[in-house]
């Protein structure tokens, strides 16, 4: 039967057929995920570094909170953003619900705590090593942040890829805020959910294989970068 005919050829024909329909889905997935992770990186890296270097009352509480947020259930995040962006919600006038932007916002919210938490850890470790040197050079904590971020770049790329992993595998939140609209907000994960519910398991599986291949590629990249990083850190 068709269920067990999941060969490379059948996957390819499923994906390339239908006028490149599924290439569009794959592309949208990448676009939403990469945009969300890029934005989360632009905000999260400096924020994580600032949290690593700052000392203020309540800092520990914030660190614990951020660490907790790493495990934020995507469905809950999705629901919260849904209520915010809905026409009857506080940000309804922006008309963002059921758009790719809404999905980017959802993934941004899910990925940001991961990036902040992992960055804080990385930068705090590096700061212990660099503190005397940077202070000696007259760089205050604030001016030390760019140095630390750059010198931790290989670990931080891994951090970003961890965020990318979480974002690309996520379905709960983007299904709620994106609405899974064909050709507009339908991504790989929401397609898999939909095709499964249509009983088209071969197609769902084919998309799953593509998603896993992308994840594999991302992780290979992460490994490669960490090897290069190890060279720069003088560990090999």
């Amino acid at each position: 039967m068709q269920q067990d005919a999941i060969s490379t050829a059948s996957i390819l024909s499923l994906l390339l057929g239908d006028g490149g329909h599924f290439l569009g889905i794959i592309f949208l997935s990448l676009q939403v995920t990469i945009t969300a992770v890029t934005c989360a990186g632009l905000v999260g890296l400096p924020l994580g570094a600032a949290l690593a270097l700052s000392r203020f009352p309540g800092r520990t509480v914030i660190i614990v909170l951020v660490n907790t947020m790493m495990g934020f259930p995507p469905v809950v995040a999705g629901l919260a953003i849904f209520l915010l962006l809905s026409r009857s919600g506080p940000l309804g006038d922006m008309g963002l619900l059921f758009t790719p932007k809404a999905m980017m916002i959802a993934q941004f919210v899910l990925v940001l705590p991961i990036i902040v938490a992992l960055t804080r850890q990385t930068i705090e470790d590096l700061w212990t090593e660099y503190q005397d040197h940077l202070t000696s050079l007259g760089a205050g904590r604030l001016r030390s942040i760019p140095t630390l971020l750059w010198d931790a770049r290989f670990s931080l790329v891994t951090t970003l890829l961890a965020g990318l992993g979480r974002a690309s595998a996520e379905v709960g939140a983007i299904l709620i805020v994106g609405g899974n609209i064909a050709g507009f907000t339908r991504t790989m994960t929401t397609s898999i959910a939909l095709e499964t519910s249509k009983g088209d398991l071969p197609l769902a599986m084919a998309l799953g294989v593509v998603l896993m291949s992308l994840t594999l590629a991302i992780n290979s990249l992460a490994y490669g970068i960490s090897r290069v990083g190890a060279r720069f850190s003088g560990k090999s």
Partner: peptide, 23 residues
């Protein structure tokens, strides 16, 4: 100051100089 365990930035030798001078 030069520390007992020299702090080497994770960059090239040249970039280590450039960074200190930038600071």
């Amino acid at each position: 100051m030069v520390f007992q365990k020299p702090v080497m930035l994770r960059r090239s030798v040249r970039a280590n100089f450039m960074h200190a001078l930038a600071m």
